[in-house]
Design a protein around this nucleic acid. Structure first.
Ligand SMILES: [Mn+2]
Ligand SMILES: [Mn+2]
Ligand SMILES: [Mn+2]
Ligand SMILES: [Mn+2]
Lengths: 230, 230
DNA sequence: ATTATTATTTAGTCTTACCTAAATCAACAA
DNA sequence: TTGTTGATTTAGGTAAGACTAAATAATAAT
């Protein structure tokens, strides 16, 4: 069963939408994949009538993945994130460059290639943006963290994940040192949705950066003292 | 101007056929690409009427590349051979595994990727089979060597290139140590197209391997003393 | 309970790249 | 010169996967 690039992208998109927004609708898929809604309808009809059944679809009611479909989606996501990590670590790509390249490569590499880069990287659990890399049997490392936008003054934490959105934003964050594993402290929080002031690094004297909501929404932090201590 | 995978494969095939057999005919292309001759006719008609013109084609008369077409063919070949080399050197693929993976990857990697792996490899001139890697401006390192089948008893030389054909044959040759840069001596030559006895390595006492014509036809050697000395 | 709006599907086309079967061309021998 | 034959092209068709425009269903507003 060899799937087209288009189908792999649909399965991946359905997976992501279901997990990030609870459900995958025709329009949301059309937006995500940058095709016309009518094209999505057509593809969903085809996918749900194909066997083995990869998606569960009822007209006007959105779509979800069957276990078989989810397995494939996770394989493609594993390819994507492993490739991103490899480009970053082994070939020196910056984290804002890796996505587009991975988007193409994910569909053409062999299992051999996947295994060898995973090996070279020491079987990483996360990609350069902090997104978890599914294992070969489709398990996802859990990561528990909260959005930087929700942190309050005085809280400290460690950056776990940055949403892989606009390359320019990623470059900006990298400049500030806001990358996975960095330590953050919220030193100030302006009222009425005003900017958040954030210190990067462990030193208490570090300069604070003022970050607006569009930025803090993209950053996820594991806040210190979240787990009960002692 | 972004070309489909199919078109890139046609251009590459036309290039290779013209250089290895003098001309590219419809049937030869159909064989090479494993499609029906009718499909080749259709594609050649399309390619030769597209602009910019990548091929020069007259019905019943074969096809050749225009300078623009040759430029693209060489870019794809550069991709292919660099990728083969990278898979071999950086990821530990054996030389019989690299071709199929490269055949897919060559169409999807970016210039960035090309540049970075070329850099990592130290801008190699040859791929794992000894095929020359075109430079970024489309120049091909020359390699002057002759087929092992044509060598006579007592001649010594250095393996330069092995035709990238059957993976099983490549594995066999690797076992014998017949890989680019190896030193060979023809110790015996049976008459009437009989096997060639070949010693691998520089030591005079090395065991000789008997190789049949189908094997020796695939191996190319730079024979010692070919150039006038003193 | 209607009406207006938005989301989604259906209908009808298009492009790319392949296929088979039938027609035609080119080259060579009789 | 005229067949014969192998190579090649044309004709007609399929399958993906996209699109636009028109129809319909679902949802929200009156
Ligand atoms: Mn993709
Ligand atoms: Mn990522
Ligand atoms: Mn190819
Ligand atoms: Mn090669």
């Amino acid at each position: 069963m060899v799937l087209s690039e288009a189908i792999e992208n649909y399965l991946k998109a359905i997976y992501q939408l279901c997990h990030e927004r609870g459900r995958a609708t025709t329009t949301a898929l059309a937006d995500w994949l940058e095709v016309a809604p009518a094209s999505v309808s057509g593809m969903l009809k085809k996918l749900s009538s194909d066997r083995p059944k990869l998606v569960q679809y009822t007209r006007h009611r959105g779509v979800s993945l069957t276990p078989a479909g989810e397995k494939i989606a996770l394989e493609v996501i594993r390819h994507h994130r492993l490739i991103e990590m490899y480009l970053h670590q082994a070939l020196g790509y910056s984290w804002d460059q890796v996505h587009d390249e991975a988007e193409k490569l994910e569909h053409v590499i062999s299992e051999e290639f996947e295994d060898r880069i995973a090996e070279k990287l020491g079987h990483p659990e996360f990609d350069p943006h902090g997104d978890p890399i599914p294992t070969k049997n489709g398990e996802l490392p859990k990561l528990s963290c909260s959005c930087l936008s929700t942190m309050s003054k005085g809280q400290t934490g460690r950056v776990r994940r940055v949403r892989n959105s606009d390359p320019a934003l990623l470059r900006y964050l990298a400049e500030l040192g806001i990358v996975p594993d960095a330590t953050l402290t919220v030193s100030e929080r302006a009222p009425f949705g005003g900017p958040l002031h954030v210190q990067v690094g462990a030193e208490p004297g570090a300069a604070a950066h003022a970050l607006g909501r569009p930025v803090t929404d993209q950053v996820f932090v594991e806040v210190d003292g979240t787990a009960v201590d002692e």
